[in-house]
Structures are given as structure tokens and as C-alpha cells.
Design a protein around this nucleic acid. Structure first.
Length: 467
RNA sequence: GGCAACGUAGCCAAGGGGCCUAAGGCGGCGGUCUGCAAAAUCGCUAUUCGUGGGUUCAAAUCCCACCGUUGCCUCCA
């Protein structure tokens, strides 16, 4: 049915043909945020990119089941809860709600499932027990660790050699572990921490287990795509893979896709450097299309420098697209007629799909959209109605929705600069009054009165009130 | 120290052996349109792809070295 899609698989380190396990049905899992704060642009990149990728898969005919988790059991959340003196659930719930606001503003479609760790604790315990029974995990002083030495493929995903990593001396040494690389599956609760009852006493899940459990529960022991930021490759995804494959004895994720990091002045954006840029802040100055095309204008695997110059340039480019679409919508009074797909449209659609089929080359797809904008404007000026409709529909109703951009007419954010506007009007009127052009100056005052704005010529100058 | 990635016009960014005398966007310059602007549009804006070697009939694209930038190796999307 669909043409072959190639994606870069982190495990194989090369472009591979994408073939889902079940014909025509793609199951994908995207690592979501730990909700201890408002999300930042670094969180937004995978949301935007993989939402678009999911839409693309659907566009070419796949059924897609997508899962994106919320990690709601975590040190950072617990710390924040302790700081505020509230239960950890309150922090988690608060930032999930805030997540949806940002997500809604960015017009990111929700996944099919958004599981939370706290809803899967019993499944997590079951998973860990199974690993212990199979000899891949051991209990040590109420903690449970994964025995990395037992999983011979450990390091396969991140292309590391366990021996090299041990010598790398940056790994925390714990006398509870048999091997410094062993990672926590279950963590005994300390005083004042939330806990769940388990065969190993009161405790909580470790750092990587939740994604293994939730993906396996919702998508099966083996599924097609596991995605996330490339900073998760090690240790997070390496560990998820080890756990799941140890337990089930089969491939965990068939393909691994990782997006590059957002950078800020050449450095990775991160809390520790203090250069985070919250989505909440960003959206004050930029509309979703600007943010999304800015991100999609660079290949998803490359690092992306977030700069104001870059965003401002993108804003202008986006405006040009919106103005062109608006011209058409105004001409047809918002009822732009649909037309049958012409050969011209089919050709462009082919190109578009071709570009995205090679490791999701969104920059090339966006370049095609800009070409179409030029074509649209030219056709409009030449009154070539057929071509206007073709290009219009390609942008607004085919390509835009696939990438999650240009989906809606822009409500012009006329942040109504009322005061500045009134001052200009009053200046003009006062000039007219000086010239004794009372007919025009009264026209201004009377028509303003009609829309509820009253002008008052006081000794201190002209004042106005708005009803 | 170990393992990677990247370096293309003023800026952002595709291309990853011949279709490249290198897409697209922003900016700049000039023309059309306009009373003047704005918008739109047309043309120009890298003979060259970090530097130096090499492989090849052919390299921005492959190999080596060097310089530079960044990431991962600890929670991080």
C-alpha cells in the first residue's frame, strides 16, 4: 500500500526501511516529560516532531497507536512536593494540566494513551518479580537492581562497551550493587517519601522501569518505534531495552528514533546551566506556526539553536504563508471550494511524501510549501483560479495538517494598541481643528461616539473615555 | 579519559559520488506594481561547500590528518 519509508535507527546507526510488525499498523512510544514544572522548548521538540511524524504515517495510510507517558513518580517531583508541603500527586496533577495548556496552544494532537507511572505500580512490581525469577535482577537491602552483567547485549543501543564505562569512573559507586552499572528497578522509600507496598518492602519504582512497563502493557512486548530525545539513549533507553528484552526474550522496540537537542547560544539548554526557555514564555511572543515551522525547518536529528533572530525570521516567513492563504479565503468569503485532486496536486503530493519518506526530511517538505506559496501568489495575481485552488488546498488542507502547521486561519493578534491609536486620531483631529476644518473634526468625534468612544476637549488637552 | 555528531552564502538551513555552474527561509541590492508606501512579484546576492592531503573518469558528498563547535558517559526531551 504505502511507499517505503526510511528512518534512521539509533540501534543500527543507519537508515533502514521501515516495516511495522503488524502490516499497516504502527505502534509507537514517545518518552514524555517528568511533570515537575512547566515544559520547556526542549520538551516541545519531540512533541512537535513526533506528532508530525505520527500524522505523516497516518497520511500515507497507516493506522497508528501512539503512547506518550507522564512520569509522575520521580525525585524532582518529590522534592518539589516537599518544598511546598503538598502530596506529590498535587504537583503531578498541576503540571499535567499545565502540560495540556501548552500542548493545546501548540496544536499538538494528543497521543492515543497518556499513561502515568503511578497507575502502573502493580504492573511494575510484577515486572520486577519476573526479572528476579528469571535471574536478571536481585534484591539488595530492600532495593532491587538489574544485573547488567546478565544481559549480554547491554550497551548495544548506545554503542558503548560496559567495560569502558566502568573504567570511566563517573558512575556512582554503591556497595549495594554487584556491578557499578547495575541500575535501580525498585527503590526503598526513605523517611517522608511516598511509597507503595511491595515484596521488598515499602518503596517506589526506579528510574527506567515505568517506560518498559507502560509500553509493554499498552503496545505489547514488541512494538515498532520508540522515540525521544537523544539524551535519553543512555542510560534511559538502554536500560528500558535491557529490562524488557531480558524479561520477554524478544526485541523490545524494532526501531529507535531520537531527536537532537535544543541549544541556546551554542550550549545545550538545561536546568543546570539555567538557560531554559519555557514554552509558556515563548508563546507570549510567537504564534504556534512560527514555533513549529522553526523547529521543523531543521532536521529532527540535528541540534537546533534557539535564537530570537531565528524565530523572528521565521515569523516573517510564516506571515507570508498566512497572508497568501488569507487572500484566497477572503476572495471566497471563507468558503473556498474544494476541487478534485488534479495531476499537478498529485505530483506535489508525491514530492512531499518522497521528502518525508527519507528520514522525515521536514526542512525539504517546508521548502516545498514555500514554493507553493510563491506559486499561489503568482497564480492569484494572474487570476489563474485553478492554480490558486490547487496550491491553496495543498498548503492548507494537505501538507499543513500533516506537519501540524498552517491548519487554522490566523486570528490577527491585533493586540489592539488602543492608546497609541487614539493618540494618533486625536493628533489628526486637533490639526484639523487648528485649520478650522470642523466638519472633518466633528465627523471624527461623532463617529467615535457611535462606537462608544467619547472625546472631551478639556483645557488639559483632549481626553477620551471608552464605554 | 572513553564514545559520538557536526562545520554549506551576511544569518538560518537542505543536499550526503555525476541531475550541484548547491533547494528553501531571513536579510541586502535592483526592476514591476503604487500618488507615495505596504503587500505581492521578477532578477541579482556561495564557480563554491572548515583546512590540508588522498581515492575516483567524476567529491560538498567516500577515506586520512588537522583545526573548530557540540553532545553523551550523572537527572535531563
Amino acid at each position: 500500500m504505502v511507499k517505503t519509508i526510511k528512518i534512521f535507527d539509533t540501534l543500527k546507526s543507519e537508515l533502514v526501511d521501515f516495516e511495522p510488525i503488524e502490516k499497516n499498523h504502527v505502534r509507537m512510544y514517545v518518552c514524555g516529560p517528568t511533570i515537575y514544572n512547566l515544559i520547556h522548548v526542549g520538551n516541545a521538540r519531540p512533541m512537535i516532531v513526533f506528532d508530525a511524524f505520527r500524522r505523516f504515517l497516518e497520511y500515507v495510510g497507516y493506522k497508528v497507536t501512539m503512547v506518550q507517558n507522564f512520569t509522575d513518580i520521580d525525585d524532582k517531583i518529590i522534592n518539589k512536593a516537599n518544598e511546598e508541603g503538598v502530596p506529590f500527586e498535587e504537583i503531578a496533577e498541576r503540571y499535567i494540566v499545565e502540560y495540556w495548556k501548552d500542548s493545546y496552544y501548540l496544536r499538538i494532537r494528543s497521543a492515543n494513551y497518556h499513561p502515568k507511572t503511578s497507575n502502573y505500580v502493580s504492573e511494575i512490581i510484577e515486572f520486577i518479580e519476573d526479572l528476579i525469577n528469571k535471574g536478571y535482577a536481585y534484591e539488595s537491602d530492600s532495593d532491587v537492581y538489574f544485573d547488567v552483567a546478565k544481559f549480554e547485549k547491554y550497551g548495544e543501543l548506545s554503542h558503548r562497551n560496559p567495560d569502558d564505562m566502568i573504567s570511566g569512573a563517573r558512575i556512582e559507586i554503591s556497595e549495594k550493587k554487584r556491578n557499578p552499572l547495575d541500575f535501580t528497578l525498585w527503590k526503598a522509600a526513605k523517611e517522608g517519601e511516598p511509597y507503595w507496598e511491595s515484596p521488598w518492602g515499602k518503596g517506589r519504582p526506579g528510574w527506567h522501569i515505568e517506560c518498559s512497563v507502560m509500553s509493554n502493557c499498552l503496545l505489547g512486548d514488541s512494538f515498532d518505534i520508540h522515540a525521544g530525545g537523544n539524551d535519553l539513549i543512555f542510560p534511559h533507553h538502554e536500560n528500558e531495552k535491557a529490562q524488557s528484552e531480558a524479561r520477554h526474550g524478544k526485541t523490545f522496540a524494532k526501531y529507535w528514533m531520537h531527536n537532537g537537542m535544543i541549544r541556546f547560544s551554542g550550549e545545550k539548554m538545561s536546568k543546570s546551566i539555567g538557560n531554559i526557555w519555557l514554552v509558556r514564555e515563548l508563546i507570549k511572543a510567537y504564534d504556534p506556526d512560527t514555533i513549529k515551522t522553526f523547529i521543523l525547518s531543521k532536521h529532527y536529528r540535528s541540534p537546533l539553536d534557539f535564537t530570537e533572530e531565528g524565530l523572528n525570521a521565521q515569523k516573517k516567513a510564516v506571515k507570508r504563508v498566512n497572508e497568501a492563504l488569507k487572500r484566497v479565503e477572503e476572495k471566497y468569503d471563507d468558503h473556498v471550494p474544494y476541487i478534485p485532486k488534479s495531476d499537478y496536486m498529485k505530483e506535489k503530493i508525491n514530492n512531499f511524501v518522497d521528502y518525508l519518506s527519507i528520514d522525515f526530511n521536514t526542512p525539504k517538505a517546508i521548502a516545498l510549501i514555500f514554493d507553493l506559496v510563491n506559486e499561489l501568489n503568482r497564480a492569484f495575481d494572474e487570476s489563474n483560479e485553478q492554480r490558486v485552488l490547487e496550491t491553496y488546498h495543498l498548503i492548507r488542507n494537505e501538507f499543513g495538517p500533516v506537519l501540524g502547521i498552517f491548519e487554522l486561519p490566523t486570528k490577527e493578534e491585533k493586540a489592539m494598541k488602543t492608546e497609541e491609536l487614539m493618540n494618533i486620531l486625536i493628533d489628526v483631529r486637533n490639526s484639523l481643528r487648528k485649520e478650522k476644518n470642523f466638519q472633518l473634526s466633528d465627523y471624527i468625534r461623532d463617529t467615535l461616539k457611535n462606537i462608544g468612544i467619547t472625546l472631551k476637549d478639556t483645557p488639559e488637552g483632549t481626553k477620551y473615555t471608552i464605554d
